[in-house]
Design a protein around this nucleic acid. Structure first.
Length: 245
DNA sequence: AGCCTTTGACCAGCG
DNA sequence: TCGCTGGTCAAAGGC
């Protein structure tokens, strides 16, 4: 992956703040809270508190509301290349979806007769925010070398035959605020977030985290849904059935 | 030559 | 019915 022109330091955003919400929040930051090397913690606190005050439903499109009801949010970023999941994919489309600051990419499994498709949403530095798998592979993994692509804890949501992988523990968010977001700033910042964010722990939609050996396919722990979505969450998906060996 | 990405166009679903 | 939006197709070009 080639680097974008904007190469800031890492901004590690607390879980519970979606990238889109973060960017939106940054757009509306008071001038005093525009991130600098020294005030990033305050800035993040401000964004976080702002997100707490504003019901998130108001921030999302109707479709995203549906996702919210199903427990699907683009809240986290994969630290590595999403396509390196043991299968080979061919990109067949890219679309800039409304409500997202970044394009969504559509991939097909390159294996013949394999119906699996996936869509991934990337962050500003090419990192994957969300991967949604559609269908089940009818063939073994095709890559010989399987790198650790999902080092952090990942969450899988099952939804009508789709599998949604997300890093729900934390995500690193590379963003050159100056050149990419139109905000004035002169330096970048590094922030380590506390994963034990009370907002997250109190979130009824907070996901079960599980440890994997680098490959999410090895795990079958499903997302904890509340309400009617629990049925969806407890269904064994085709994808998991195929991937877990 | 074959496979891939890119990208504009097209189509279907939904409000 | 119409416009919007997401998903897919397919041609073109690159590697």
């Amino acid at each position: 992956m080639s680097s974008l022109p904007c190469q800031p330091d890492f901004l590690t955003i607390p879980p519970g703040i979606s990238p889109a919400a973060l960017l939106d929040s940054m757009m509306m930051l008071p001038k005093s809270l525009v991130p600098t090397e020294t005030n990033v913690p305050q800035t993040l606190n401000y964004i976080e508190s702002t997100n707490n005050q504003i019901p998130q439903q108001q921030e999302f499109t109707k479709k995203e509301k549906k996702f919210e009801q199903r427990g699907i949010f683009s809240t986290c970023i994969s630290p590595n290349n999403s396509s390196d999941d043991g299968y080979t994919w061919r990109k067949y489309g890219q679309k800039h979806v409304k409500g997202s600051n970044f394009p969504r990419s559509y991939y097909k499994c390159t294996q013949q007769n394999c119906p699996v498709r996936k869509k991934s949403e990337c962050g500003p530095n090419g990192q994957v925010i969300e991967i949604v798998y559609n269908g089940a592979h009818n063939h073994p993994k095709t890559q010989h070398l399987r790198r650790k692509t999902m080092d952090d804890s990942y969450v899988v949501s099952q939804e009508n035959g789709s599998s949604v992988w997300r890093n729900d523990q934390q995500f690193e968010y590379k963003k050159d605020v100056t050149s990419c977001n139109g905000l004035e700033r002169t330096s970048s910042a590094s922030v380590l977030s506390d994963v034990s964010d009370p907002m997250l722990s109190n979130n009824p939609n907070s996901m079960n985290l599980f440890e994997s050996e680098g490959t999410p396919e090895l795990c079958s722990t499903l997302t904890n849904f509340d309400g009617e979505d629990e049925d969806l969450a407890t269904q064994e998906g085709d994808f998991l059935g195929d991937g877990c060996q």
